[in-house]
C-alpha cells in the first residue's frame, strides 16, 4: 500500500493538487487549517462510518442551504477512492448533495482514507464497476482542478473548482 500511496501523492503533484495527511484524532484541527473560509461540507461520519471524521466543532458548515453553498469558497466532501497512477479521486454523488458541494465552489477539499488508495485505473474501474452494478450509483473520476484551453491558453478553474486539496486520513 505504501507504493500506491506514494505514487498517488506524486500523481497529485503532477496534476496540481496539494495534499496533507492527518491522524484521525487531529482531523478537525487539520481540516480547519486546510479550508479557506467560508466553507461548507457534506457530513462525513456516515459516509466513512467513523464518528471522529465529523464536521462538528469545525469552521465548516455541514449541510448548508443552497444560498450558503453559493457564497462558500471551500467545499468539503469525502472521496471513495484515490487512484495511484493518475492522482484521480472517485467521488460518489449522494443524496447529501456531495456533487453540488464539490462542484459549485472555488476550492474542493476531498477527505480520503489511506486504505481507499488503489494502485491504478484498472483496479479502480473494477471497483467502480462492482459498486455501480451493486448500487446503481454514479461516480465522478476527478483529476486535478477544472481546466480549459478554449480561451487561447490553459487556465485552471473553468466551471468547476480552480483548486483541489486532498486530506489523507492515515490508516491504522
Amino acid at each position: 500500500m505504501a507504493t500506491a500511496r506514494s505514487s498517488f501523492e506524486s500523481s497529485l503533484e503532477d496534476v496540481g493538487v496539494s495534499v496533507t495527511s492527518v491522524e484521525t484524532a487531529s482531523f478537525r484541527e487539520q481540516l480547519d487549517e486546510t479550508v479557506t473560509p467560508p466553507a461548507v461540507g457534506v457530513p462525513l461520519e456516515e459516509a466513512f462510518d467513523e464518528p471522529s471524521l465529523s464536521l462538528a466543532d469545525t469552521s465548516v458548515t455541514g449541510d448548508p442551504t443552497p444560498a450558503t453553498l453559493r457564497e462558500a469558497t471551500t467545499g468539503v466532501t469525502g472521496a471513495q477512492l484515490g487512484i495511484g497512477d493518475y492522482g484521480s479521486l472517485a467521488l460518489t454523488p449522494t443524496d447529501r448533495a456531495s456533487e453540488l458541494v464539490s462542484l459549485f465552489v472555488d476550492r474542493h477539499v476531498a477527505v480520503l482514507r489511506e486504505s481507499d488508495i488503489v494502485p491504478d485505473m484498472d483496479t479502480a474501474i473494477e471497483t467502480v464497476h462492482d459498486e455501480i452494478d451493486r448500487t446503481g450509483h454514479s461516480v465522478i473520476l476527478a483529476t486535478g482542478p477544472s481546466a480549459t484551453a478554449d480561451m487561447g491558453a490553459l487556465v485552471t478553474g473553468a466551471h468547476g473548482p480552480r483548486d483541489v486539496h486532498v486530506l489523507i486520513v492515515d490508516g491504522e
Partner: peptide, 11 residues
Amino acid sequence: SYVSLLTPPLE
C-alpha cells in the same frame, strides 16, 4: 479533469 460515470437519474 472529469470522467463522469452517470447512472441517471442522479441522487
